[in-house]
Amino acid sequence: MKIFRAREFTASRPWGALDIATMNGITTRLHWTNQPYEWHVNEGQEVFAVLDGRVEMYWREDGKQQSVVLETGDVFYASIGTEHVAHPIGQARILVVETAGSV
């Protein structure tokens, strides 16, 4: 057993991660960031939960770019093939659940 205190986690670089678990090929990682990620498409599904802070999530659907501001406690689900990028508003801590080895 181990306890992870998300609000206390920081990393030495944006999107630095703390590996929490790998179960049946699925990873759960805690990320800290204060900088945007990059546009990407995951090979599998992704669950993105904001544990602390705020994040503006952008995605492209049917050729149109959309966005939403995710508050602490909000969850974003990216299905296979969803192009997306996260832009934190200040510092944020995010729990990401995805196929091991995803971008």
Rank of each mutant, 00 (worst) to 15 (best):
T28R: 12
K64Q: 12
R29L: 10
N42I: 03
V103D: 11
A11P: 12
N24V: 07
R29D: 08
V68F: 08
I3S: 11
T27P: 00
A6H: 15
F76G: 03
T82C: 04
T10R: 15
G44M: 03
H31W: 05
T99A: 10
R13T: 10
F48E: 02
R7K: 15
Y77T: 14
F9S: 01
W32R: 14
S102D: 15
M23F: 15
G63H: 02
R5Q: 05
G44H: 02
V68M: 06
P88Y: 08
G16A: 13
A6I: 06
I20N: 11
S79L: 03
V47D: 14
V55C: 08
S102Y: 02
W15M: 15
P36A: 07
F48T: 00
P88G: 04
W59V: 04
T22R: 14
R93G: 06
D62S: 09
A100H: 07
V47H: 14
Q45R: 14
V41E: 02
T33E: 00
G25K: 13
Y58T: 03
R93W: 04
H31L: 14
Q91G: 06
A78C: 11
A86G: 11
Q66V: 02
Q66C: 00
T27F: 10
Q65V: 08
K2C: 00
V96T: 10
L51K: 09
G90N: 09
V85Q: 10
Q45P: 13
Y37C: 12
L18M: 05
G90P: 07
I89W: 09
A49V: 15
T10A: 04
V97F: 03
R7A: 12
W59E: 07
D52C: 15
F48S: 01
A11W: 11
Y37S: 11
N42W: 05
A21M: 10
G90C: 11
M57C: 11
A100G: 00
G53L: 06
Q91T: 09
E71R: 12
K2Q: 13
E98M: 10
G101I: 02
F48P: 01
N24L: 12
H87P: 00
T33I: 04
R54P: 08
P88S: 06
T27V: 10
R5G: 01
P14V: 07
V55E: 12
M1Y: 04
L70H: 02
N42S: 13
V75F: 05
Q45G: 10
E43S: 06
E38T: 09
V50F: 02
R54T: 11
P88K: 02
L70G: 00
A100M: 06
Y37G: 15
R7L: 08
I20G: 14
R54S: 12
V50C: 00
G73S: 03
E71A: 13
F48H: 01
V55Y: 07
W59F: 07
V97A: 11
H31S: 07
A86C: 08
V103A: 09
S102I: 00
A92C: 09
N24D: 15
Q45F: 13
S102P: 01
L18Q: 10
V41M: 00
G73V: 02
W39M: 06
G81D: 04
G73I: 01
A11Y: 11
D19K: 12
G90F: 12
F9W: 04
